[in-house]
């Protein structure tokens, strides 16, 4: 498997919305490569005829009844932030 470069780490951090320091970049380069080389063991297995498992209990298309029910009041939905005005969340671009 291809080795992650510092450029890959920077790109991944960008995708993950995480700001990294120079030290972090070096640390994650080392740690992620070590973990990814471990998981490489999976390539020993031929899975060309195997279907994926995304969930284990085989429940599908569970729907709730289409009836009115109470939802979270505005005041409670906004209770964990100071970024609010007139019942909305507020943020600068």
């Amino acid at each position: 498997m291809k080795k992650l470069t510092q450029e890959d780490i920077k790109h991944t951090a960008f995708l993950a919305h995480i700001k990294l320091s120079k030290n972090d970049i070096e640390k994650y380069e080392k740690e992620l490569n070590s973990i990814l080389s471990y998981v490489d063991i999976l390539n020993e297995i031929d899975t060309s005829d195997v279907k994926e498992t995304s969930q284990v209990t085989d429940i599908s298309n569970r729907k709730r009844k289409d009836i009115d029910s109470s939802s979270l009041p505005q005041s409670e939905a906004l209770s964990n932030t100071k970024n609010k005005a007139r019942g909305y969340f507020v943020t600068k671009k």
Binding site: V39, L42, N43, I45, T47, V50, K51, E52, T53, S54, V56
Partner: peptide, 10 residues
């Protein structure tokens, strides 16, 4: 790949 091997573990 991991989801496929998950099937095998199951």
């Amino acid at each position: 790949k991991a989801m496929k091997v998950r099937t095998l573990v199951r």
